[in-house]
Design a protein around this nucleic acid. Structure first.
Lengths: 225, 225
DNA sequence: TAGTGTGTTGAACATGCGTTCAATCTCTGA
DNA sequence: TCAGAGATTGAACGCATGTTCAACACACTA
């Protein structure tokens, strides 16, 4: 087996701890925990141990801070992907993402997914593109079934994964699984979510006869009553 | 025979157009369009054509207004379900919900799903319970495949549906499908989402050999790579 | 007709927000 | 050694927010 904690300092893009970086990290943590509307300049400043004025001095405005957080998180995810992709294709980028020492990264993502900013939209688009590539590799290697609409299938699978992340409080309440938990892979409660997912991924939910009937009815007409 | 329209006022919860009701409707529309943090007492008052003070006079506080909206929407959804359920089982409650003259109801739901209130949590729990019942009926009638974990499968399918609703802006950007559109059934763009969904529901995505291997590896140990 | 109560207003209050700014601190480079 | 530049502070400003409250309008009852 190969351990993940081999490289403690990956790149400088995620290795500054200047005051500016501390403020940004505090903002990310606050958004992950209290949401966007619950994150104010004063709270971030207090969490970072600085004055409110310094937050604006470094980022121009709260919107600038938000943009910086989005870009940092996007960069961290992108970097993690590139580091992991070389180890072979993964079915789900998010599944791999959860297995990284990313701190409140998934929590941040969960909070900002619904409130779409340009950076988040770009990130989601990238995740879909990645998924499409991974899925195509999976099809070629015989792991995954081909699709009539590879792009649409990649979109749906990605949105489902991200949607489950955005609604993680409901999943935690209903199944005990917390998708934002950085140590989710060591949590046995994760099986309550993963097992049904893989069952659906494995065999679908529709019986063949009905699936064929629905498919036929769907392709011949869409809008009739 | 008794028709449904015999009692024009079934409950006071879903049939008043008093000023109080107008304020509540304005709040629901505002939340559906601008989100929770974008909905203020003054904006709601302006949209309803009243003064800000009246909003608080009727609902005690903005939190009270929010609770009233949650309860009204929950009631409307519950009522719609009861009216539709008699016509036979449906695979997805949400699919049926979208086909109702519900105005900004889906938009409201999309906005509040991520920001969980007790009322929303209760609503989600109810939707899962409904889904579990519908799915069981589907299994018994030979339409759906049985599951090793019926409850877990119902949770996952419901959360996926709701998650896609919560991330409707991404779906609209990526596929052109707007799940919050009240007239979605007459929109041909809906096929871009529904077709991949039914493909996955029909046959899954994993090839049998790999699915069996993953299942075996999963049941024997969970944490090892 | 007088009176009571509810619906409704508009001004006001306190609070928290993002942001500005002059003043101070700290450190670097010549 | 010292000047200058960036980092940092703390008080302040203007604004939007939720909420309060005295006053008014109108309906219904006695």
């Amino acid at each position: 087996m190969r351990s993940i904690s081999d490289n403690p300092e990956p790149q400088e893009s995620v290795d500054d701890r200047t005051t500016k970086a501390r403020i940004r990290d505090a903002a990310i943590a606050s958004i992950a925990e209290h949401g966007i509307s619950g994150t104010t300049a004063r709270k971030v400043a207090s969490a970072a141990g600085v004055s409110p004025g310094l937050v604006i001095h470094h980022f121009g405005s709260m919107e600038g801070l938000r943009t910086a957080c989005d870009q940092y998180v996007s960069g961290a995810i992108r970097e993690f992907k590139e580091r992991t992709m070389t180890g072979g294709p993964t079915l789900d980028v998010l599944a791999a993402l959860r297995d990284s020492p990313n701190g409140p990264l998934m929590g941040y993502l969960a909070q900002v997914l619904a409130d779409d900013s340009p950076a988040v939209a770009k990130l989601v688009d990238d995740l879909v593109d990645d998924a499409e590539g991974y899925i195509q590799q999976g099809v070629e290697s015989g792991m995954l079934k081909p699709s009539d609409d590879p792009r649409g299938r990649a979109v749906v699978l990605t949105v489902w994964s991200l949607g489950a992340l955005a609604l993680h409080q409901h999943l935690r309440r209903l199944l005990g699984t917390d998708l934002t938990d950085p140590e989710i892979l060591t949590d046995p409660a994760a099986a309550a979510y993963i097992a049904p997912v893989y069952e659906i991924y494995g065999k679908g939910i529709l019986e063949e006869a009905f699936a064929a009937r629905a498919r036929a009815a769907f392709t011949e007409s869409e809008g009739t009553t």
